[in-house]
Amino acid sequence: MPNFDDQIYAVLIQIPQGKVTTYGDVAKMAGFPRHARHVGKLLGSLPKDSRLPWFRVINGQGKISMIGERFDRQREKLRDDGVEVKDNGTVSLRRFRWDGFPV
């Protein structure tokens, strides 16, 4: 059976610059449908200096789930990445969602 963490990381590194995906999408693409919360926990436990593009993953409502300083950090990283993020942390999934296919 594939290792959950490794499968999630394998999907994560494929998310293109300027795109976002959801926790649920990552879980499904990794072969673990219905494990969105586990994806969130895993990403939340990454070291602060992780080079994985964790910030490209948002919730299914198209919003940043982080709060406080982590919210600000993710919003700025997404903006630097070319994703339009409203001040309240909302991203247009219609425009910026990555579906798992090559861009």
Rank of each mutant, 00 (worst) to 15 (best):
P2A: 08
D5H: 10
Q7D: 13
V11L: 10
L12A: 08
I13G: 03
I15W: 07
I15E: 04
P16A: 00
P16Q: 00
G18C: 04
G18I: 03
V20L: 03
T22P: 06
T22Q: 08
G24E: 02
D25Q: 14
D25E: 10
V26N: 09
V26G: 06
K28H: 06
M29N: 05
M29S: 04
A30N: 11
G31T: 11
G31F: 04
F32C: 08
P33D: 01
R34D: 07
R34V: 00
H35E: 15
A36L: 02
R37I: 10
H38F: 10
V39W: 08
G40T: 01
G40N: 07
K41H: 15
L42M: 14
L42E: 05
S45L: 10
L46S: 08
P47R: 15
R51D: 15
L52D: 06
L52Y: 07
W54P: 01
F55H: 14
F55E: 11
F55V: 02
R56L: 03
V57S: 04
I58T: 08
N59V: 03
N59D: 15
S65I: 05
I67V: 13
G68S: 06
E69F: 07
E69D: 12
E69K: 14
R70N: 10
F71N: 03
D72H: 13
R73P: 02
R75W: 01
K77R: 14
K77N: 10
K77D: 11
L78R: 05
R79D: 00
D80I: 00
D81Y: 09
D81C: 03
D81T: 04
G82N: 10
V85M: 09
V85S: 08
K86P: 00
K86E: 02
D87C: 01
N88A: 02
G89P: 09
G89V: 05
G89N: 04
L93F: 09
R95V: 06
R95S: 02
R97N: 11
R97I: 02
W98Y: 11
D99M: 13
G100C: 10
G100E: 02
F101K: 15
F101Q: 13
F101S: 15
P102H: 02
V103E: 15
